[in-house]
């Protein structure tokens, strides 16, 4: 929604396109800088993996934010959709030799299908009931996978080709962010936001509430599936214990810390949480205690997260870019 507010300042076609172009240009610069860091060995393999994980987690948190933040439907089952994408894609690439993109597409599609199937009945529930139901569904997905011998059961699926590379995750991340940004700034995204703000008023404005809840849930699940596909191909082995509700909580922490209803927030949240996890890898308890206290104090003093809802205009998400955009306009 912050982006939505911000659009006002760029709501002519040329200004919107200029803004998009600048976002893309910055992404290219960032990409080139990181890629250069890799090739000049400035970034070691530990941080290389973590940069890839940050990108994947941005995909996960942005897609969860679409459901939880923009549409206001509190889901705790995101890891389940991630698992579906991961397993579908590794079957394709490992057992059938398909390329990664095929795995991502089919993994995302299967997760989306499941999201739609689950969303239709479940999204009638409200608030904390929806949260606990989606948590349960995510766990059911995981337990079902754990009982399929074909994918290795509890022991995990081994022999996955290492197909996830930095360019793949980076490009996918940018596509995801643009997709969600454009979605929330369209009439469809506004319908989702209206559902979050006031369901009765949204319906009175001609918005089919169920349709948009399910739409957001399905799109969110699709990107979670794609994120899962990328995640799986970072490792030689995946197993169902990577997709427990703790993982869903992890994405929730990113979204809540960064800010509900803010893509910038999701990026920041994913970055902070992943980097912190990496930095504190040797002290896992300590890391979780920090998250715990951060969540609690955030709810006391800043329940909307670092970025979030209205504050976003002031704490402009693309502050730098806004500045660049002004410069661009002066030329």
């Amino acid at each position: 929604m912050g982006e939505l507010l911000q659009m006002k300042k760029y709501n002519s076609k040329s200004a919107m396109q200029k803004f998009d172009f600048l976002l893309l240009a910055c992404s290219v610069v960032l990409f080139a800088a990181i890629q250069a860091g890799f090739s000049m060995d400035l970034i070691g393999s530990f941080w290389k993996l973590n940069i890839i994980l940050i990108c994947i987690n941005i995909i996960m948190s942005a897609s969860l934010n679409l459901i939880n933040g923009y549409t206001g439907q509190f889901s705790l089952g995101h890891a389940g959709f991630m698992a579906v994408g991961a397993y579908v894609s590794v079957i394709l690439t490992t057992n059938f030799g398909a390329p990664l993109i095929a795995g991502m597409v089919l993994g995302g599609a299967c997760a989306a299908f499941l999201g739609c199937l689950i969303g239709l009945p479940t999204l009638r529930l409200n608030g904390d009931y929806l949260a606990i139901a989606t948590l349960g569904l995510g766990e059911i997905i995981r337990i079902v996978i754990m009982n399929i011998e074909y994918v290795g059961g509890a022991a995990g699926f081994t022999g996955i080709p290492h197909l996830t590379t930095f360019p793949w995750v980076f490009v996918t991340m940018i596509v995801t962010l643009f997709f969600i940004k454009n979605f929330v700034n369209s009439t469809h995204g506004r319908a989702c936001i209206a559902v979050r703000e006031n369901e009765i008023a949204a319906a009175a404005m001609g918005i089919n509430i169920t349709r948009y809840k399910v739409m957001a849930f399905t799109i969110g699940a699709a990107f979670a599936g794609i994120g899962g596909a990328l995640f799986a191909h970072c490792f030689y082995i995946i197993n169902p214990s990577s997709f427990t509700f703790m993982q869903s909580f992890n994405f929730l922490i990113m979204v809540v810390m960064g800010g509900l209803g803010s893509l910038t927030g999701s990026i920041a949240g994913a970055f902070v949480v992943t980097a912190l996890s990496a930095a504190l890898a040797s002290w896992p308890e300590f890391r979780m205690i920090i998250y715990a206290l951060a969540l609690i104090f955030l709810m006391f003093y800043r329940p909307q997260g670092l970025f979030g809802y209205v504050e976003l205009t002031a704490y402009a998400p693309f502050n730098k870019l806004k500045f660049l955009n002004k410069e661009g306009g002066q030329k």
Binding site: A131, F249, P284, M288, I289, A292, L295, I296, M299
Partner: peptide, 23 residues
């Protein structure tokens, strides 16, 4: 506060007890 804020706090509290105890 909104119920979801309290729910998130409860999740945080849960982590705090689990990992505090683990510590």
């Amino acid at each position: 506060a909104p119920r979801l804020s309290v729910l998130i706090t409860a999740i945080g509290m849960s982590f705090f007890l689990e990992y505090g105890m683990m510590y």
